[in-house]
Each structure stands twice: as structure tokens, then as C-alpha cells.
């Protein structure tokens, strides 16, 4: 039988077509529109919206706070997640119960997390109540006069909420490490810390890398936690887009800030990928 010249489209193409079309419509198109909103005014291309953004003192505070949050939160939460996973690996009693409690925040939104910790940190909240019970005076943790404790409160709430994600990725990564390696290292006389340092962590590397990129991008989007805890007293970049859009009713400046967030995210992701590639090559 002669083969026909034209091939019918493979089933795979038909199967992925709906998702491709949908994602293009809901991702690529808005991206183009967004760039237009930020850079094109009623009279053609303009930098007016960008200038307006840059002239706003809140923008610079928000940028600083956002970056500071990422720099402080990410290392803390990775150390925390690895410790949690190592603890669970020791098979403590009630491991199932501990695991359940430790992963609940996975399904908690940042708004909810902010409200949860508001009950703790607010002036007449549970933290000050507990301090009062032991005879220590309360402290205005969330007051704009105390920017350090305000920032710490946001870090704690985010640590509480978002470490679960890293934890779960690390635990899954640890399950993928064959027990033989660890046992072999033990037979050859490695101490616990030597095994963690030379056997477990190197094998977790791929999991940690992915978690790092994911969490950094998500941390750049932190918003509702700070909103719930501090209002606009601790401005963050995403909070500013919300502010410009909902309060100042200026979607153009809002779109401009969104593009800044996008740029920082891409920069961070590209930076990580490059670092990881260099590290792999160096080995």
C-alpha cells in the first residue's frame, strides 16, 4: 500500500491544543496587554507611568522591604525545612501526627496566615496576654513606630505559612535517596553530621534547587500577610500594585509595578539557574 504524503495530525497535538490555546489566551495575551498598559498612554508610547511609579516614595520602600523579606526569609526557611525533614527521618514517636500539623499551612492562604498571626501579635493579642501573665509589659509589635518588630512579625508569619512547601519537597527528595548510601557511609564510620553533610545534602540538591526558585518567586509575591498584619505600614511591591489599582484607581502605574515584579522574578530565576549551572560545571 502506498503511503499517503500528508500525515494526519498526531493525537498528541489534538490533546494538548486546548490547554495551549487556553494558556496563550490567559497568559501571553495579558502579558502583552500589560506591557501596553505600562508603556503606552493615550498619545502613544510614554514613560509617564514609569516616572510616576519611580517618584512615589512608597515604591522604593516597598522594593526595599520586598527584597529584604526574600533575603531574610528564604535562608531561614530552608534551614528550618531541612531540620524538620531530618527530625522526621529519625522516626520520632507520633511522627504521623507531627507531619500532619507541620503540613497544614500548605493549604492556608497568605491572607489567612496574616489574620492568624494578627491574633498573636496585635496589641491586646495572645502574645501580649501571655507576657502579661508572666508579669512582662506588652509591646506594640505591629506599630509603625516599631518597624523592626513589624518586619519580624511578617517574617514569622511567612515562615509559619510557607515553610511547609519546602518541607514537603525536601521530605519527598529524602525518600528518593536509597537507604544504602546512608548505611554504607555509616558502616565506613561517618558520624551523623558527616552523613548529613556528605551524603544526604548533596543528594537533596536537585530538590532544593527547584524549591529555591519556586519559593523565591513566591516570596516576591508576598502581599496579604503584610496587609493583614500591618495595613500599608509595611508596604510590599504587590501590595503597591493593589494600592494603585484599587485605591488610586490607576491601572497603568499598577501594571508598571507588576512588570517590575516580573522582571525581578525572572532575574532571580535566571540568576539561580546560572549559579546552579556554574556549580555543576565546577564539580
Amino acid at each position: 500500500m502506498a503511503r499517503t504524503g500528508r500525515r494526519t495530525p498526531p493525537a498528541a497535538v489534538l490533546l494538548i491544543a486546548p490547554s495551549l490555546i487556553f494558556m496563550t489566551a490567559l497568559f501571553m495575551w495579558p502579558l502583552v496587554v500589560g506591557v501596553g498598559q505600562a508603556l503606552v498612554g493615550p498619545d502613544g508610547p510614554t514613560t509617564a507611568y514609569l516616572r510616576r511609579m519611580l517618584d512615589d516614595p512608597y515604591f522604593w520602600t516597598a522594593t526595599r522591604n520586598t527584597l529584604l523579606l526574600v533575603v531574610v526569609l528564604i535562608p531561614l526557611q530552608f534551614a528550618f525545612a531541612v531540620v524538620m525533614a531530618l527530625l522526621l527521618r529519625e522516626r520520632p514517636r507520633f511522627a504521623g501526627f507531627h507531619f500532619y500539623i507541620w503540613v497544614i499551612p500548605l493549604a492556608i492562604s497568605d491572607l489567612a496566615a496574616g489574620l492568624v498571626w494578627l491574633s498573636v501579635f496585635t496589641d491586646r493579642g495572645y502574645l501580649n496576654s501571655a507576657l502579661d501573665l508572666v508579669g512582662v509589659d506588652g509591646y506594640a509589635w505591629l506599630s509603625y513606630q516599631n518597624p523592626v518588630t513589624m518586619f519580624i512579625a511578617v517574617v514569622v508569619a511567612e515562615l509559619w505559612r510557607s515553610t511547609s512547601l519546602v518541607f514537603v519537597i525536601v521530605v519527598a527528595g529524602m525518600q528518593g535517596i536509597p537507604k544504602d548510601y546512608d548505611e554504607a557511609a555509616e558502616v565506613f564510620g561517618a558520624t551523623y553530621w558527616q552523613r548529613v553533610r556528605h551524603v544526604i545534602l548533596p543528594q537533596l540538591r536537585p530538590s532544593l534547587q527547584v524549591a529555591l526558585i519556586l519559593r523565591t518567586i513566591l516570596a516576591l509575591e508576598t502581599f496579604a500577610v503584610a496587609q493583614a498584619l500591618t495595613g500599608r505600614n509595611l508596604p510590599l511591591l504587590v501590595g503597591e500594585t493593589y494600592q494603585w489599582y484599587s485605591v488610586q484607581l490607576n491601572p497603568n502605574v499598577s501594571a508598571a509595578i507588576a512588570l517590575v515584579i516580573l522582571a525581578v522574578s525572572m532575574l532571580a530565576a535566571a540568576g539561580y539557574l546560572r549559579m546552579m549551572r556554574d556549580a555543576t560545571e565546577a564539580r
Binding site: L26, F27, P30, L220, E221, T241, P251, L262, A269
Partner: peptide, 17 residues
């Protein structure tokens, strides 16, 4: 890649669309 796009980048233009 689409998972790496911040929601906010989509939301504002989507509102106009």
C-alpha cells in the same frame, strides 16, 4: 514557565480584557 509568572502580572491586564 507560566507557573513562574506572578499572578499580579496577569490580573491587572486581565481586568481590562
Amino acid at each position: 514557565l507560566t507557573r513562574a509568572l506572578p499572578i499580579v502580572v496577569l490580573s491587572v491586564p486581565l481586568a481590562r480584557i
